[in-house]
Design a protein around this nucleic acid. Structure first.
Lengths: 118, 118
DNA sequence: CCATATGTGTAGCATATAGTACACATTACA
DNA sequence: TGTAATGTGTACTATATGCTACACATATGG
């Protein structure tokens, strides 16, 4: 559990920086709305907390998936949480049941749900 | 945003207390491992924070479902969170897709998963 | 070359979360 | 009727979470 979030965003940012000078740590921090020193600490794992709101802005800036970046920083999107909290027993059971299924099988459910088979 | 958690556990506790004197606020608090004054504040909505660990013990004491009590206090079980965080994109999509499905339809998925149809 | 931008160090701060300790007035009941 | 149990008020406390402000040395490119 070392510093997945930090190293992940650092790598992504540096990759983007290679082709676009607007991806300096300072400029990204400014766009996200946090102090450069704070982003620096996050990237290096010296600090681990970043709010959901800022993570979402950062994800957009880096062209990353919201849910993935949130997960890397130990969070789950508020909208997902609310969905579960509205029907906790139902969703808890479903999630625990699906827990060990391979991605493929889960995706099949997703697809069938999408296609209105339910 | 009123005091669902507090009034819910107060009602449940008083119901049990009617038939069993061991369900006084003080005795329940002692079994759960918190100060009676704290449980009092929780039941009356003067205080809203109770840790997942204590909520689980309280739920067991009151014969209530863990996930339901957790949800009422705005939480989601750590094990559920971890399941989602391990495959955030997959689970986020699934959850958002079935968000508006009626209980019955979700239950059908649960049952088919249970029966190994996947 | 030098002005500007860059990444980082140090020192704080505010709010949220999760409680304890104990006195007090009231209630219950042996 | 007195004593033990009950529910609650007041006053603290500790840690987690999420940040700011600003100085500093170094890098960079016009």
């Amino acid at each position: 559990m070392e510093n997945i979030f930090g190293s992940y965003i650092r790598e992504k940012r540096e990759a983007l920086k290679a082709g676009d000078s607007r991806y300096s740590l300072r400029q990204v921090a400014t766009r996200v709305g946090i102090e450069p020193s704070y982003l620096s600490k996050l990237e290096r794992g010296e600090q681990k907390y970043l709010s959901e709101e800022k993570i979402v802005v950062l994800a957009d800036d880096l062209n990353e998936d919201h849910d993935i970046l949130l997960a890397l920083s130990g969070k789950i999107s508020k909208d997902i949480q609310e969905i579960i909290r509205k029907r906790p027993k139902l969703f808890a059971q479903l999630i625990r049941d699906i827990k060990d299924m391979p991605d493929q099988a889960v995706l099949r459910i997703v697809r069938e749900v999408r296609d209105g088979k339910w």
